[in-house]
Design a protein around this nucleic acid. Structure first.
Lengths: 337, 337
DNA sequence: CTTGGCACTCGGGGGGAAGGAGTGCCAGTA
DNA sequence: TACTGGCACTCCTTCCCCCCGAGTGCCAAG
């Protein structure tokens, strides 16, 4: 259907359009890409490519621009991921190594990705479900109020204020804390509900109402998918892009947690690098943007995802290289801490 | 210097310009504001106002636009803060009451402020220095690695991973934890350094190197001003504004923590409501924006600040009302938890 | 001090016209 | 059959010019 030269023409169109942001014509193509054929021949090829929906022209007397389908073919078959330079890799490493807690890792990752790709970076906090419990802390902060702090092996700290039905002694709290820790220590969060199933029986009858409240909040915290926080940064990089959609639409979409979550896609295994181009995005207001995302995690199991969002007219090979590299390094950092 | 009518004219110019976004002329003023004088008279007044630098005209045959100095006079003498409607107040209350931890309070506040004012919201996390220690937790997370968790009475949880020189027993950690808590419990963070001064002496000689490391990280965490985190949201509200500066400049400035910090200004007492207009902002790239900020906190002492950023052409009375109201409610929420 | 009148200024918008990039088609050639 | 050069055509972009009108400053009169 499409011979090698037609594919080469498509590749050249994508590359030229990405770097110049102007519809590319047959003459410029023939000159700059040494295809060894005349502009007329290229025009014929372009006519075929257009007929098949890979490129389009904004208006009759203009050059061609890739369609979403064209970018898709380019990403799938015509390009290879561009590895980062040694300098860039060193920069990532030193930048991420300076982080001192999970929040810091995430916020540094966002800034790093945004800077590296000159696009909007999106990073999801590591999921709780595959972490295990390192420690549970229970602290009275006021009458009838306890603070529950949960520390996981991924360095994540979750906190919740709990309203309890009756005041309890410092001693009861200590006992409950000890019990919780003995039940949960080292246990996967996903298995926590079963692990604490018989805990209430071990509590003195007087403290059972309190224990029940604490437990329900604890389980809610563990299960609560809302806690899958996503942050973004680098919005400034959108300013100089002209979307067919309004910039406002894109920014609004980015400020909705739910949209951000969907954007990154399902958490699969950590080696996955996915590209979603233009209309492939479910969200209306992001029809003119592309997303490059990857899972990251410890070992080969992904804890969460990160990626960047930019105009469909983006440098896919470089962007994919940057996203992949950052995902790997973040995984290493998390494994180490 | 400026009689009452001239002030009324200035007020009318500001109000009209804010609502229409178009230079306002003498005729429209005379008609819409019932000043009881003819356009010619208003023109004379406008000439004086322009001479004194309160208004300016974009080009010769256009109406007048307030200058930064004009807005300043308007804010200081010509307007009163507009209280929120009962419905808005209820909305704030119910929205903020749903928050379940400090992060959630802050992120809800950002969204609330942005929505209420249709501008960019900026919120600083409550400062540590005026909080007191509720609890210190120390958990071994790996060999030669401890996790330090600090819980304050404002519900803030700070965490740091500590690399220690030698591995220590679970028992030593417990002892150290107990010691830390007995020294620090209830003590103001600002006074922590003196409170722990003689702690090393109470530690068994073998554990002193570890204790010293932990202490140094702890004090660093307390003192570290970098921890004064600031977040913003509502960037989408900037999209439809046309700045004289480029939008990109403004967004870039917003993504720098340091700039955000400076933006909100010094933490004073919590009743302070400050307005910084256009060039009054120190930052180059924010010359065409205004900031309305207020302190918030428990009682009359401010823990931190929050505010909004928008074009100098903003509805100051309403914005000030919203910022003040939100600041108060956040203070109440923090006091309650 | 205020007012109506009047000449003046200047930005914005509409309407061609020229320029040019790029195309599709066709006939000729290897 | 595949490629090439030539050519007419399309239509976007840019520029210029002109006109319109909003708004002004000034002045003389009330």
């Amino acid at each position: 259907m499409l011979d090698d030269r037609k594919l080469a023409v498509l590749r050249a169109i994508v590359e030229d359009y990405v770097s110049t942001n102007e519809p590319v014509g047959s003459k410029a193509l023939a000159e700059r890409h040494g295809l060894g054929v005349s502009p007329a021949t290229i025009r014929n090829d372009m006519a075929v490519l257009e007929e098949q929906g890979y490129i389009t022209q904004p208006h009759t007397s203009a050059g061609r621009v890739p369609t979403d389908k064209g970018y898709r073919l380019f990403v799938d078959r015509l390009s290879t991921i561009k590895p980062l330079s040694a300098a860039e890799r060193r920069a990532i490493e030193t930048f991420l190594n300076g982080a001192y807690d999970l929040d810091d890792v995430v916020s540094r990752t966002v800034r790093l990705l945004a800077q590296l790709t000159r696009q909007v970076a999106v990073v999801q906090y590591p999921s709780l479900s595959r972490s295990s419990v390192r420690h549970v802390e229970l602290v009275p902060v006021a009458e009838k109020r306890l603070l529950l702090v949960l520390i996981t092996n991924t360095g994540r700290v979750e906190q919740r204020v709990i309203e309890i039905p009756a005041d309890v002694s410092e001693e009861s709290v200590s006992k409950l804390r000890a019990l919780l820790n003995s039940c949960l220590d080292g246990c996967l969060l996903a298995e926590a509900p079963t692990a604490v199933a018989d805990l209430p029986e071990q509590v003195p009858p007087d403290d059972r109402p309190v224990a029940a409240t604490v437990l329900s909040v604890l389980l809610e915290t563990l299960v609560d998918k809302h806690e899958e926080k996503v942050v973004f940064g680098g919005a400034a990089n959108l300013a100089h892009v002209d979307f067919s959609q309004s910039l406002r639409d894109v920014l609004e979409a980015l400020e909705e947690q739910v949209v951000l979550m969907r954007l990154l896609g399902e958490v699969g295994d950590s080696s996955s690098l996915t590209v979603r181009i233009g209309t492939e995005n479910q969200h209306e207001r992001l029809r003119s943007t592309s997303v490059v995302a990857a899972g990251y995690g410890v070992g080969d199991q992904a804890l969460a995802r990160l990626g960047v969002l930019g105009p469909t007219r983006m440098d896919y090979p470089s962007t994919m290289g940057a996203v992949r590299a950052v995902a790997r390094y973040v995984g290493q950092i998390l494994a180490g801490s």
